[in-house]
Amino acid sequence: MYAQLVETGAKRLKTLEEMSPEEREFQEKVDAETKIEPKNWMPEGYRKTLVRQISQHAHSEVVGMLPEGNWVTRAPTLKRKLQLMAKIQDEAGHGLYLYSAMETLGADRDEEIEKLHQGKAKYSSIFNYPTLNWADMGAVGWLVDGAAIVNQVVLQRTSYGPYSRAMVRICKEESFHQRQGYQILLDMMREGTDEQKAMVQDAINRLWWPALMMFGPHDDESPNSQQSMAWKIKRKTNDELRQMFIDQTVPQLEFLGCTAPDPDLKRNEKTGHYDFGEINWQEFYDVLKGNGPCNRERINTRKKAIDEGGWVREAAVAYARKQKQRTQAA
């Protein structure tokens, strides 16, 4: 996932009658589940919304490497270290893949990254929380990648072809990460010491609510959802996705022998779903506005990496130019 509150620029949906012939043809194609490809005509709002959503998704993959980088130097075994390194490498790959999908819409990767560093572009709020013990590496895989998958499985059917295909590939790897994450927790709960078990519960306590926030605000607080759904950029609402996530996650939580920090979490026999307590939306909006525990650190780290790497990238360009001149001269 990793896209929250993506602005569409639309106040209300246009009816087919209000649309221009081009818009109508486009909407009919979307309604017929025909994928939109880079060379097809598309409304400007659709293009911009997709650029926002895909770049936000890409930024999240890249910023999401940082909370894991925090533990990759301290992984407890060779096996866990290698798994975490492979996961981080996958995430860099997802970032690259998504930026490429975004560039098919005429956007520029460097410009979008610059917006991120200026605080103008968003990334998933979850990565503004710190990873404080090793079990966080399990909980991030299980809950954060788990929440991402719920959204991304649906996004495999998104209307824009390159994004949809990126999702198919990314989903496969994310599912793998999620299982690995859960296994970390399960091994610690089954064979760990009391201290290790406490780490697991502590990680879940801290990451539970932020994971639920990943799906974004309630449907009635999500002004852009309607247009995104009509364009089939989004395929299910925030609340639907959140409920799906909770329903699949709670049995796993129980199997671990852990609890969620939510006294209202309970299976509703009538609906067959789990009821749960209200999210602290003030915290959600605070984090989105930049006031989460790690917002500053995350952006500063990314900005510093790109700023301090400027001379490296310039050298690569200069060398390539020289090589080209040499080939031409020869």
């Binding site: 890249v62 490497m65 940082l66 894991e68 980088g69 990759v72 130097t73 060779l78 096996k79 270290k81 290698l82 390194m85 492979a86 981080i88 490498q89 860099a92 790959g93 970032g95 690259l96 930026y99 780290t301 990314r302 510093k304 990496a305 790109i306 301090e308 790497g309 400027g310 490296v312 990238r313």
Partner: peptide
């Protein structure tokens, strides 16, 4: 190389550095 996670001069380098690190730790094992 693990220490450089998230700090490489470009995203392509991020991937390559972690890839090399992964090979090395795998060989170490």
């Amino acid at each position: 190389l693990c220490e450089l996670c998230g700090k490489a001069p470009a995203l392509e380098e991020e991937m390559a550095l972690m890839n090399v690190a992964l090979d090395l730790v795998g060989q170490a094992r």
